[in-house]
Amino acid sequence: MIPWVQLDSAKTPDGGQELRLKRRGAEFSIMLGTNELMNSRLSGSEEALARLSCERIAGRKQPKILIGGVGMGFTLRAALAQLPDDAGVVVAELVPAVVAWARGPMAEIFGGSLDDPRVTIRETDVGHIIHSGISTWDAILLDVDNGPEGIVHKGNDALYGAAGLGAARAALKPGGVLSVWSQGPDNGFTRRLKQAGFSVDEVTARAHGKRGARHVIWIATNGK
């Protein structure tokens, strides 16, 4: 079996943990300690995050999309495949090294999506962007942790609490959607979404084909 090779590492924003980019043949993995955050062979649920979100806002003129987390580009590529030519997509990434990995060792996976004229990359906290706009976004897609809690960056906890969800709802246009990816279910988060005023659908998506792990995607619609 081909062994894993570590290509690079980067500290998390709080400096307390380390992200590691690893490669085995054509396969990539991003690790946080012993926890695998993402793998290039497992893209199904990230693509579903984009597909389900774009379906909800289909037909809108000049849709504006905010994606939290560059990851391995699966969500971005799936969104671009469905969005019209006049769309605008902002991708927020808190760890600059992840953007460098996307443009460097993993460039083939990204397939030029970072250079799509519809795309803007911002190396900043997605929460800052959310708080800076009112009725700005047609969709906000969050895949910045393994679920609705701050694993990579504890500051991300603020995205999933009452105040963060209230800010997200305010940042969305009427009928806009907040979509959140998770490794598994979280009944408390479903309840907080509803308490924040969203209409909520909780969808299960496979990580890979029909046999991959079952991940959860919340599609929360702003009814204001």
Rank of each mutant, 00 (worst) to 15 (best):
I2F: 14
P3C: 02
D8S: 14
S9K: 13
S9Y: 03
A10R: 08
A10Q: 07
K11F: 01
P13W: 11
L21D: 00
L21K: 01
K22D: 05
R23M: 05
G25L: 09
A26V: 08
E27Q: 15
F28A: 04
T34H: 10
N35L: 08
N35T: 12
L37G: 13
L42I: 05
S43H: 07
S45D: 08
E47Y: 00
A50I: 01
R51V: 02
C54D: 12
I57P: 09
A58D: 10
G59C: 10
G59L: 08
R60C: 04
K61L: 14
Q62S: 12
P63C: 05
I65Y: 09
I67G: 00
G68Y: 09
G71L: 06
G71P: 06
G71S: 03
F74S: 07
F74L: 04
T75V: 09
R77P: 09
A78R: 06
A79N: 06
A87M: 02
A92H: 10
E93W: 13
V95L: 04
V95G: 09
A97W: 05
V98K: 01
A100V: 13
W101A: 02
W101E: 00
W101C: 04
I109Q: 10
G111W: 03
G112N: 05
D115E: 12
D115S: 15
D115W: 03
R118S: 07
V119L: 14
V119S: 06
T120V: 15
I121D: 04
I121C: 10
V126N: 01
V126L: 10
V126P: 03
V126C: 01
G133I: 00
I134G: 01
T136L: 14
W137E: 09
A139Y: 12
L141P: 05
L142N: 15
D145H: 03
N146A: 15
G147D: 07
G147I: 06
P148V: 01
P148K: 03
I151Q: 15
K154L: 08
N156S: 10
N156Y: 11
D157S: 04
Y160W: 12
A167F: 07
R169M: 08
R169H: 04
R169E: 11
A170M: 15
A170K: 15
A171Y: 01
P174F: 11
G175S: 08
G176Q: 10
G176H: 08
G184V: 00
G184P: 07
P185D: 15
P185F: 15
D186I: 03
N187T: 12
N187F: 11
T190M: 13
R191G: 15
L193V: 07
K194E: 15
A196H: 02
F198A: 06
V200G: 09
V203S: 05
A207K: 07
H208R: 06
G209K: 12
K210R: 12
R211V: 06
A213D: 13
I217E: 03
I219C: 12
I219D: 06
T221W: 14
T221H: 09
N222F: 04
N222C: 11
K224N: 08
K224M: 05
